[in-house]
Simulated scan of single mutants.
Amino acid sequence: MSDRLKEKAANLFAARFGSAPQGVSFAPGRVNLIGEHVDYNDGLVLPMPVREGTAAAWSKGDVDRFEVVAADFGQEDRFPLAPEKPGTIDWRSYVRGMIVSCGLARSGLRMVITGDLSRGSGLSSSASLCIAVGRALADAVGADPGPADLAKAAQRTEHEWAGVACGIMDQMAVAAGQAGHAMLLDCRDLSFEQREVPQDWAVAVTESGVSRGLVDGEYNTRRRQCEAAAAALGIGSLRDASVHQVEASALDGVTRQRALHVVAEIARTRAAAAALAARDLAAFGEILRAGHASLRDLFEVSVPAVDTVVDELQQAIGPMGGARMTGGGFGGAVVAVFEAGRMADLERASGRTFLRVH
């Protein structure tokens, strides 16, 4: 999939600028199996890369200016080496922000960007865009930043240029993910282990039909609620809290719910990693089901349309696997893990189309 997208980007570049690009970078999207809304609480997460992503074809151009084409939007942007924020938050915010955040721009570039991730699906199209641009910048100057450096630059771009107070999971999963593996990432110190997904497991994603919007939604509010809970408990982050500590606290009802989700979700991530290592698909599916219920009832980031998709898939999958919403919430995609070879059966039973991840 990435090779075809890179070829498409190169062809689009040649058509726009009249010559072949000097290079083409690629960054995948990601799906998070479990560990939702815990990355900004220093928690543990278990994402894996998808096959689809973003490609950026580039060549060196004017010394002091960038010329960037967003082929999928039919739009272009021209700006100096030290760009200002655009008037509205859109794809230009991420491209300009990543150029500033990386600190790798020595001269201007011509760039054509294209992707095959559905925007608003919860598969981290923004992180994919940022990392693809960061890799292009690094290649252009012969730099070799590590995945953590690229991920941190992409996170700064989200915070400072897009107004989303996200954690580091998406960016690390995109920058360091390995195909066919789930990444057990510690968001406190960015250490990670790659856990191979069994060949007799299938991982697939289906869109709920509800486009997700983190800025317009309540993502930032959830982060503030978690920070308030940690402060009230006298700890640096909810990573250090226990269920007993939260239940025995004087937190108000809503803040208590948010904290309970985070503490239990971190424990679920540990349990999911153990189930993955043990190749216990039934246990893994049970963890996914519990995770969705928590996101729906305690963290309140699911929506009825997504719940309906999850319920339908749970019924179709049965005890050997599970499904849940994935991503920041308020719409987006649903991830399902089930027995390999059942994809066609599930598509018929649910009437839905799946994007195969593994």
Rank of each mutant, 00 (worst) to 15 (best):
K6N: 09
K8F: 01
A9E: 08
A10H: 05
L12A: 06
R16N: 08
F17D: 05
F17G: 04
G18K: 04
A20T: 07
Q22M: 14
Q22A: 10
G23E: 01
G23S: 00
F26S: 06
F26R: 14
G29C: 05
G29W: 06
R30G: 14
R30P: 14
R30S: 11
V31E: 11
L33P: 05
L33V: 03
G35D: 02
E36F: 04
H37K: 08
M48K: 11
M48C: 15
V50F: 14
R51C: 11
E52P: 00
A57G: 11
W58H: 00
S59N: 08
G61T: 03
D62N: 13
V63F: 14
D64M: 14
V68Q: 06
V68M: 10
A70Y: 12
A71E: 12
D72L: 08
D72F: 13
G74Y: 00
D77A: 13
D77L: 06
L81M: 01
P83G: 10
K85R: 15
G87A: 12
D90I: 03
Y94C: 12
Y94D: 09
V95G: 06
V95W: 04
V95C: 10
G97K: 13
C102M: 10
A105H: 05
S107Y: 12
G108N: 04
G108F: 06
L109Q: 09
L109Y: 13
R110S: 10
R110W: 10
R110H: 10
